[in-house]
Amino acid sequence: MTRHECLSILATLLKDEDLVVTALGWVAGEWHSVRPKESNLYQINMGMCTPLCLGLALALPHRRVIALESDGSVLLYLGNLTTLANKRPGNLTVIVFDNQCYLATGGLPTATAGVTDLAGMARAAGIRDAYEVRELGDFEEQARAALGREGPSYIVAKVDPTGKRMSTNIDGKEAKYHFVRYIEKSEGIRIIGTHAMKMD
């Protein structure tokens, strides 16, 4: 099972207005290749993808938020599992593509290449719907279930340590403006600009 295969399936399960945030690494370009929507935010740095999605999900509880995480990123800030479990954002699905290595930086193993079980840790942290999948059919079933239920859901997809370096066609900080302008438009609110401020 490759990450790209999983992403291709996931793209068919989402609505245009579902907010998807990717971690750093090749996952960003791969996701852009299968779902190039303005509701995507790419390349959130190590450790911060899931907590950023938690904030986003709490700010917009009526929108579905999907975090496309990596094992290396989750392992950097493991404590976030406990925050997620206790806040229980019903609209958040975290999908960890666990390739058991730091692929984009040379391929050395992560802890999950050893004895560590991320889905088990998520369950022990208190996230009830945390599952590990190894087959594409199971991935689709779990992704569908996660998107249909009150979350949070946590899917650890064990994928091959392969990937493709692809471009998102969006330059770094430009992604912030794309995403914020999309949220402003779709929510009818203002986030950037003096008129967005409550104070004089």
């Binding site: 800030y77 493991l78 730091y102 984009a104 930086t105 040379g106 050395l108």
Partner: peptide, 26 residues
């Protein structure tokens, strides 16, 4: 913690029995 600009060095260090080697997640 593995980093792209150091991965060859990291492999070399990990394989060398002269170093106690502890890869970490943070």
């Amino acid at each position: 913690l593995p980093d792209s600009d150091f991965s060859e060095l990291q492999r070399r260090v990990g394989d060398d029995r002269g170093f106690a080697y502890v890869p970490v997640s943070s």
